[in-house]
Amino acid sequence: MGLHEWGWGGVYLSPLFIYAVLALGATVALRLLLQVTPLGRWIWHEALFDCALFVLILCGITWALSGIS
């Protein structure tokens, strides 16, 4: 896919915005999964955990989809 802008209806979208939306969805899904399992009780500070999880997932998506190895 690469790191280039996407044109959608005359509006250019940054690839980081699209990656952030994907990362947000994955973060929400993982958090719901963690709340259902007993692993969720080991999270000390939920806001910091959510932020760190989002950043890690965003970095992984950006690395995987940018084509840079």
Results as ranks from 00 to 15, higher is better:
residue 2 G to R: 00
residue 2 G to E: 10
residue 4 H to C: 09
residue 4 H to M: 11
residue 5 E to N: 00
residue 5 E to V: 04
residue 6 W to I: 15
residue 6 W to Q: 13
residue 7 G to L: 13
residue 8 W to H: 11
residue 9 G to V: 11
residue 9 G to I: 09
residue 10 G to P: 01
residue 12 Y to C: 10
residue 12 Y to P: 04
residue 13 L to N: 03
residue 13 L to K: 01
residue 13 L to C: 06
residue 13 L to H: 10
residue 14 S to P: 03
residue 15 P to Q: 09
residue 16 L to K: 07
residue 16 L to S: 13
residue 19 Y to L: 14
residue 19 Y to R: 14
residue 19 Y to V: 15
residue 19 Y to G: 08
residue 19 Y to D: 15
residue 20 A to N: 02
residue 20 A to G: 06
residue 21 V to Q: 06
residue 21 V to D: 05
residue 21 V to H: 05
residue 21 V to F: 12
residue 22 L to M: 15
residue 23 A to D: 03
residue 24 L to W: 14
residue 25 G to M: 08
residue 25 G to H: 01
residue 26 A to P: 01
residue 26 A to F: 12
residue 27 T to Q: 08
residue 27 T to M: 12
residue 27 T to D: 06
residue 28 V to Y: 10
residue 28 V to C: 05
residue 28 V to I: 14
residue 29 A to R: 06
residue 30 L to M: 13
residue 30 L to V: 14
residue 30 L to Q: 12
residue 31 R to A: 15
residue 31 R to C: 15
residue 31 R to M: 15
residue 32 L to D: 08
residue 34 L to P: 04
residue 35 Q to D: 13
residue 35 Q to I: 08
residue 37 T to L: 14
residue 37 T to A: 13
residue 38 P to M: 07
residue 38 P to R: 00
residue 38 P to I: 10
residue 38 P to G: 06
residue 39 L to V: 12
residue 39 L to G: 01
residue 40 G to P: 04
residue 40 G to Q: 06
residue 40 G to F: 04
residue 40 G to S: 05
residue 41 R to F: 08
residue 41 R to Q: 10
residue 42 W to N: 07
residue 43 I to G: 04
residue 43 I to D: 08
residue 43 I to Q: 03
residue 43 I to L: 07
residue 44 W to F: 04
residue 45 H to V: 12
residue 45 H to P: 01
residue 46 E to K: 00
residue 46 E to F: 04
residue 47 A to T: 11
residue 47 A to N: 07
residue 47 A to S: 09
residue 48 L to D: 05
residue 48 L to R: 06
residue 49 F to H: 10
residue 50 D to H: 02
residue 50 D to T: 12
residue 51 C to N: 04
residue 51 C to F: 10
residue 52 A to E: 08
residue 52 A to C: 09
residue 53 L to S: 06
residue 53 L to P: 02
residue 54 F to D: 05
residue 54 F to Q: 04
residue 55 V to H: 02
residue 56 L to P: 03
residue 56 L to C: 13
residue 56 L to T: 09
residue 57 I to N: 05
residue 57 I to D: 06
residue 58 L to W: 13
residue 58 L to F: 14
residue 58 L to R: 03
residue 59 C to A: 15
residue 59 C to K: 09
residue 59 C to T: 14
residue 60 G to F: 11
residue 61 I to A: 05
residue 62 T to P: 02
residue 62 T to A: 15
residue 62 T to L: 10
residue 63 W to S: 14
residue 65 L to H: 02
residue 65 L to S: 08
residue 65 L to V: 10
residue 65 L to T: 11
residue 66 S to C: 05
residue 67 G to L: 07
residue 68 I to C: 05
residue 68 I to N: 11
residue 68 I to H: 10
residue 68 I to E: 13
residue 68 I to S: 11
residue 69 S to K: 07
